[in-house]
């Protein structure tokens, strides 16, 4: 049962990341291809916030499989984040690469804490 819920959450989370990334790029990226990867930053922050809410609310195991492991897990990504950081560094944007790592981590942590607080605390 959990397997199906994780798969279902993943099947929704990954396209949601793709569509969000497109929407964010369409807003921010017009004419500026190599700027900060805001799309991935947005999904990682949003997914961390939702996972924080699920952690704070101590949801049931099946709901956590669907929304936490599946949806938030697939909505957020470390592979895309790392690859973007590498590309920023390789294209002479070392500062943006470093900023991407530090800001993503701090905002991700903040989002988890905020979400947990909103849902009643850790």
């Amino acid at each position: 049962m959990s397997w199906l819920l994780v798969a279902l959450g993943g099947a929704v989370g990954a396209p949601l990341r793709y569509l969000t990334d497109r929407a964010v790029q369409a807003r921010h990226g017009a004419g500026l291809p190599y700027v900060f990867p805001w799309g991935t930053f947005t999904v990682n922050a949003a997914g961390s916030l939702v996972l924080g809410v699920l952690t704070g609310a101590t949801v049931s195991t099946p709901l956590h499989a669907l929304l936490g492991t599946g949806l938030c897990g697939a909505l957020t990504t470390y592979s895309t984040f790392s690859y973007e950081t590498l590309r920023l560094a390789e294209t002479g944007r070392g500062f943006l690469a470093g900023a991407n790592v530090v800001v993503s981590l701090l905002v991700g942590l903040g989002a988890v804490f905020l979400g947990a607080e909103l849902a009643g605390g850790f």
Partner: peptide
């Protein structure tokens, strides 16, 4: 789209990473 966005994007996770760091803190 299949391997990069789907499989690897779905396999890796930033939210669980951030939540695990928070829980440890």
């Amino acid at each position: 789209p299949f391997l990069g966005v789907g499989v690897l994007g779905g396999f890796t996770t930033f939210s669980t990473y951030a939540a695990d760091v928070s829980k440890l803190l």
